[in-house]
Nucleic acid binder design. Structure first.
Lengths: 197, 197
DNA sequence: GTCTATAGGGCGATAGAC
DNA sequence: GTCTATCGCCCTATAGAC
């Protein structure tokens, strides 16, 4: 039904398509639709294979490997699934982005990647306060890389963009590692604004 | 209606409370409920003041300040709103976390923070590929800090936790900045797993 | 497969604030 | 007069229960 839903949502818009119509185009009944999918949105987000793939690939990374690098291996495993289906992925992405309800669900899926990733990282021995941080940030990096990959007219490799994005992160946050700086001026500005409402 | 919704969702669970009941407890009708809120979930996420506050505070940071530090000032402005209402915030957070529909909406709100932040960063002169990255990662950092703040039994300052989390980020990703490493072993593992399904 | 409650939109009426 | 908040009634589709 995935394909039927994509077509109909693309043509008429998510809200103007009923679950029954999607089912019908796929030669099924409305009842069957809701048997397969918990709700209408799920047609385009069937299950969470990618989250599972991500977690599995990270778990599979060799023992010695640093957490970040295990994560990169995981993201690359996910990237590999997208790589050869660029047009189909882009088409689906366009439909999702055009509809808030679907964007919302997409975010929820990404969040579940994070959760799964976090669990695996803890399993690999990364202490918990850091595991969540690495997991959340890694998924954020993936999100950005994914967007760059879709936007880039040329067919650059998603895996390469992921690594590049990650490297850019190091650059952006390089200065902050040492410790807190003098931000009193910035804070004063924010405080001023805060007080006048 | 915010308060009425919080109570009812907390007592009976989101799904077992109708919009009409929430409205009624607030002395209004169902129709009015839907005039105020686009959908039932929105009762707990009224508008997007915090996203606006974040964007405004970042925009207000002095010109010379580095992007990351402007963002920190912004996150601290948001933190200040939470700081003195810890119990109320925690109560709302518990209700949201208990219900997937509400968690989903929360993620959508956070995503809109990202979008707003990205725009402001571009306005501050940060080139676009980096702006989205910084915005997404900053919000991820906030999410993690927020969680730590809520989990921490002691009433540690959210602002401090944010800066600490950010510093931890520098540590986690320190090694990756130089460039891609040899991940062939990890990739081989992932590829093997990929091929057997 | 059938039945039903609820979400949520359309349209229009009313009433107070300015 | 306009603008805005409230409410009434009718409708369809979602999604759960049976």
């Amino acid at each position: 039904m995935h394909e039927a839903a994509l077509e109909l949502f693309g043509e008429r818009g998510y809200a103007r398509v009923t679950a029954a119509e999607v089912a019908e185009r796929a030669g099924l009944t409305e009842r069957t639709f809701f048997r397969h999918f918990a709700d209408k949105r799920e047609v385009l987000f069937d299950g969470n294979e990618l989250g599972g793939l991500l977690a599995a690939a990270v778990a599979d990374a060799p023992e010695g490997v640093a957490p970040v690098e295990a994560v990169v291996a995981g993201l690359e495993a996910v990237a590999a699934v997208f790589e050869d289906r660029r047009e189909a992925v882009a088409r689906r992405a366009r439909v999702v982005e055009a509809h808030p309800e679907l964007r919302e669900r997409e975010l929820a899926k990404l969040a579940s990647w994070s959760k799964a990733l976090e669990g695996v990282l803890v399993g690999r021995g990364l202490p918990e306060p850091d595991a969540m941080l690495l997991a959340e940030v890694s998924v954020a990096v993936f999100r950005v890389a994914y967007r760059r990959w879709l936007d880039g007219g040329t067919a650059r490799e998603l895996a390469a963009i992921i690594r590049e994005t990650l490297a850019g992160l190091g650059g952006l946050f390089a200065h902050t590692a040492p410790g807190p700086r003098d931000l009193s001026a910035a804070r004063a500005g924010a405080a001023a604004r805060r007080s006048d409402r």
